[in-house]
Simulated assay, not measured.
Amino acid sequence: MKLSTVAPAKSRTDIRYADERGKTRISWLDSKHSFSFGRHYDPRNTHHGLLLVNNDDVVSPGAGFETHPHRDMEIVTWVLRGSLVHQDSTGHSGVIYPGLAQRMSAGKGILHSEKNDSWRLGGEQHRDPVHFVQMWVVPDSDGITPGYEQLEIDDELLRGGLVTVASGMAKHDGAAAIRIKNRHAALHVARLQPGGTAELPEAPYLHLFVARGAVTLEGAGALTEGDSVRFTATGGQKVTATADAEVLVWEMHAAIATR
């Protein structure tokens, strides 16, 4: 995909409420899609900035996504509750859990699976679902060598405010937990206690997702779990928790070029 770094001319704040999302519900999966995904296709809702997928998934124990392919995509997975087992064709495997930043670069092609069956790697079987958000952004270049990276950052999140989880931007060299292969994008996460605040960065494109809890957004009002906001040519607003909350913020300085 071609990218555009032309700054948008007008500022906009577009609130999307949780119940407006597309939904996929089957026996083992409850998935909600912020953008077009699978059979939920809307040509007016394919992406924002560089973000194409923001899926809010709950997977039953013992179930999950069997081995499937990806190509030319930076995939960041953020677990909110439970644990998720990752395995891929480059030989990487492990358990992802809350506070662990994880990125997979699909590049020229990769196969992977994601399942809620950590006991198969050792330990007792559990009955807990796993709740996670999976986000896809386009890379700078197609056909790169596939890769994988993860790092535990739970301690940093305890300090409050936005923590840079994943970034390809030069200004986050040495500051981001993990790197992604797009020099125009960064993911920040904040865990907030009631009354705690985080200030949004300024960027041509921002995407705020309330992963859990409830917050108020300066100038826009109350947001609850599953709500999201797409900002264009703005930023600097404060997000304040009204209950224990976790918010995911994509900062993007380019967008997918549209014809």
Rank of each mutant, 00 (worst) to 15 (best):
residue 85 V to I: 05
residue 37 F to V: 09
residue 40 H to S: 11
residue 254 A to F: 03
residue 172 H to N: 14
residue 48 H to S: 06
residue 244 D to Q: 10
residue 196 G to C: 02
residue 221 G to I: 06
residue 13 T to K: 13
residue 38 G to V: 03
residue 92 H to Q: 15
residue 10 K to W: 00
residue 31 S to A: 15
residue 69 P to S: 07
residue 229 V to I: 10
residue 107 G to Y: 05
residue 125 Q to D: 03
residue 66 E to L: 08
residue 254 A to W: 08
residue 240 T to F: 02
residue 246 E to W: 00
residue 60 S to E: 15
residue 34 S to T: 15
residue 1 M to E: 13
residue 74 E to T: 08
residue 202 E to L: 06
residue 255 A to K: 14
residue 88 D to G: 04
residue 237 Q to E: 14
residue 237 Q to R: 12
residue 75 I to D: 10
residue 16 R to N: 02
residue 52 L to H: 02
residue 29 L to K: 11
residue 194 P to G: 04
residue 172 H to R: 09
residue 125 Q to I: 07
residue 125 Q to R: 15
residue 218 E to C: 04
residue 64 G to Q: 09
residue 140 D to E: 14
residue 39 R to E: 15
residue 148 Y to V: 04
residue 1 M to A: 14
residue 16 R to T: 09
residue 115 K to N: 07
residue 143 G to P: 10
residue 89 S to W: 01
residue 161 G to C: 05
residue 158 L to Y: 00
residue 16 R to C: 07
residue 142 D to F: 12
residue 131 H to Q: 12
residue 151 L to C: 03
residue 125 Q to Y: 01
residue 123 G to N: 06
residue 166 A to S: 12
residue 45 N to G: 07
residue 104 M to T: 11
residue 11 S to T: 13
residue 68 H to Y: 05
residue 19 D to R: 13
residue 165 V to S: 05
residue 36 S to E: 06
residue 3 L to I: 15
residue 208 L to Y: 04
residue 149 E to K: 10
residue 152 E to R: 10
residue 101 A to Q: 10
residue 232 T to S: 13
residue 9 A to W: 00
residue 182 N to Y: 02
residue 83 S to D: 15
residue 248 L to K: 02
residue 105 S to G: 15
residue 115 K to H: 10
residue 171 K to Q: 15
residue 232 T to D: 04
residue 81 R to Y: 07
residue 192 L to W: 06
